[in-house]
Write a protein that binds this DNA or RNA. Structure first.
Lengths: 107, 107
DNA sequence: TTCTTTAGTTACTTTATGTAACCAATTATA
DNA sequence: TATAATTGGTTACATAAAGTAACTAAAGAA
């Protein structure tokens, strides 16, 4: 019985990225702090799910939420160091996609 | 209106990895060809979903399926070059997880 | 007072996933 | 000959997650 077990830390990390939208949110935030409505526009996610995902990412220390009490209120989401350090992962996904994904079928 | 659009190839790649189990299956197959039942055991995925995912990965040219008509039949799943070239992505996820995931809470 | 804007939330429908029982093919065993 | 064992699935059904669209709170502007 070759019961080679998968590294729990890897499993935890991949379960984060396996959650729908999470990878895209992090990727998008790599280009700097952004507000809620901008994220919905650019990513194409609904407010309901974006709200849920951002709360989750905040709870995991990947994203911070900052309130600017202007009018109307401005709230910005930004990657923490932990979040930003996912850049090499995103870069490799980008690299792979440039080589292997046909731009015509793009899903 | 800053309608910066997300690269469609990146989006396509991340939607692949955002599908539950897909990342783990690819990661596991990086260590060599493996059969159906071994994958269910190691990954902890049900036969129903493993079957679905493998068909999908095969259709995308990421995995091949080989039948060995022994007794009982042996069927092996193996990464293609396209699949194997996701190794750098998996390596970076691994790296990140070693630095940022606390082994105690592991999800 | 009514309107706008941002950042959400709520209620409801549709899709994806989890679970467990079942099936076909093939050979070994009683 | 009938029964069992093994692999690689599939089917049917229950539960969880995601999609959709309407709604809300806060706060200043018209």
């Amino acid at each position: 019985m070759d019961t080679a077990i998968i590294c729990p830390r890897f499993e935890s990390a991949i379960s984060l990225l396996s959650q729908r939208w999470t990878g895209l949110i992090i990727y998008q935030l790599l280009s700097g702090p952004q507000r809620f409505s901008h994220l919905t526009d650019v990513i194409g996610i609904s407010g309901r799910l974006l709200s849920e995902r951002l709360k989750n990412l905040e709870a995991q220390g990947i994203v911070t939420r900052t309130v600017y009490p202007e009018t109307p209120v401005r709230i910005e989401y930004e990657l923490t160091e932990k979040g930003f350090s996912l850049k090499p992962v995103m870069d490799e996904i980008q690299n792979w996609s440039q080589v292997w994904i046909d731009p015509i079928e793009t899903k």
